[in-house]
Computed example of a mutant assay.
Amino acid sequence: MEFTKPQLIGFGGGILLLLGIFLPIVSMPIVGSVSIFSSGRVDGYILLGLTIVSLFFVFQNTLRLLKFTSVISLLMVLISFVYVVLKVNNLKGDLAKDLEGNPFGGLAQAMASTVQIQYGWVFLFIGSLLLVYVAFAKNTTKATVNEVTPDIQEQPVREILKSTKTKLVAEDYFSHNAGNHIKPTSQSELKACPFCAEQIRIAAIKCKHCGSMVEE
């Protein structure tokens, strides 16, 4: 089975999105790295289901349905990213406020500073954006082809009509000129050949039909 270029891009986007679901999106002390799937939130399972369905739509080349799954996946990734960033910032702020004046506050703040956003988001965003691109770029290309096709189809017809019109004008012109230069011979200028009885000119000395010499 041969896949189109948009389908190949869609497969790439789906695989990147699938990898991003299991790659770390944030790292925390003691807990370690956490992925969107292992975070315990339901959006990780929903995103996994949307990714599998999107890959199926790409395989079937049903890009109209891919619009919905790809857009929802991108929105979920964006909302999850904003949620995690806000959660990390609030955690650091609350920790610094609660441990203000505490002798172990410096150690806690040092541990809080190790909470970092990880590279899994790169896979999530690129994968979901590629799926959205494939879903909407296909329709744009199709519309462009439909707009250009009628002009392409009309070109041979126009060339044929132009050629036919030119030919008719040339034939009419030739016939008109030929009629002006070639005048029909009147009956008074003809006589019968004494050998074959065909009509020849009075001034002729040789019959053009039988080749006999005609006396004047």
Score class of each variant (00 low, 15 high):
Gly211Asn: 06
Ile182Pro: 05
Lys206Arg: 13
Ser27Cys: 07
Trp121Asn: 04
Pro29Cys: 06
Gly10Ser: 02
Phe174Pro: 04
Pro150Leu: 12
Lys87Ser: 11
Asn89Asp: 11
Phe104Pro: 09
Phe22Tyr: 07
Val148Arg: 01
Thr62Glu: 02
Gln118Ala: 14
Ala203Ser: 13
Ile46Asp: 01
Val134Pro: 04
Val145Met: 09
Phe37Gln: 11
Glu215Cys: 08
Glu100Leu: 09
Glu189Ile: 04
Leu18Trp: 14
Gly93Met: 12
Ile30Ser: 07
His176Glu: 12
Ile200His: 01
Ile182Gly: 09
Cys210Pro: 12
Gly106Ser: 13
Thr141Gly: 13
Tyr83Asp: 06
Phe3Pro: 04
Val42Cys: 00
Tyr83Leu: 11
Val157Phe: 11
Gln109Ala: 03
Ala204His: 10
Ile30Gly: 01
Pro24Val: 08
Gly40Asp: 12
Ile9Trp: 08
Ala170Arg: 00
Tyr83Ser: 08
Leu78Pro: 07
Ser39Lys: 02
Cys193Phe: 03
Val157Lys: 08
Leu63Arg: 01
Gly40Leu: 07
Gly127His: 10
Leu18Arg: 14
Ile15Tyr: 07
Asn146Ala: 06
Lys87Trp: 10
Ile21Val: 13
Pro103Gln: 05
Ala135Tyr: 03
Ala108Thr: 08
Gln60Lys: 13
Ser33Cys: 09
Ile200Lys: 00
Phe3Val: 05
Thr4Ala: 10
Gly127Gln: 07
Lys138His: 04
Ser113Asp: 09
Phe136Ser: 03
Lys183Val: 15
Ala137Asp: 15
Gly49Ile: 01
Val84Asp: 03
Lys67Pro: 00
Thr62Pro: 02
Ile9His: 07
Lys138Arg: 03
Ala96Asp: 15
Cys196His: 09
Ile9Phe: 08
Lys191Ser: 08
Phe37Asp: 13
Ser33Leu: 08
Arg201Glu: 14
Ala197Ile: 10
Phe37Ser: 12
Asn146Tyr: 02
Ala178Asn: 07
Lys92His: 15
Val71Trp: 05
Phe125Pro: 06
Ile126Trp: 03
Val214Gln: 06
Leu168Arg: 11
Phe174Ala: 06
Val214His: 02
Tyr83Gly: 05
Gln109Met: 05
Phe195Ile: 12
Leu107Thr: 14
Lys92Ile: 13
Arg64Gln: 10
Ile30Asp: 05
Phe123Met: 06
Leu95Glu: 12
Gln109Asp: 06
Thr4Lys: 06
Cys193Asn: 05
Ile21Ser: 04
Gln7Trp: 01
Leu18Gln: 15
Gly40Tyr: 10
Phe104Asn: 15
Leu130Pro: 00
Gly44Arg: 01
Leu48Met: 07
Leu17Asn: 12
Cys196Met: 11
Gln7Ala: 00
Glu171Trp: 12
Ser38Asn: 13
Leu55Asn: 00
Thr185Ser: 10
Ala170Gly: 01
Leu75Phe: 03
Ile202Phe: 02
Cys193Tyr: 03
Phe11Ile: 02
Lys5Ile: 15
Gln187Pro: 11
Leu107Ile: 13
Cys207Arg: 07
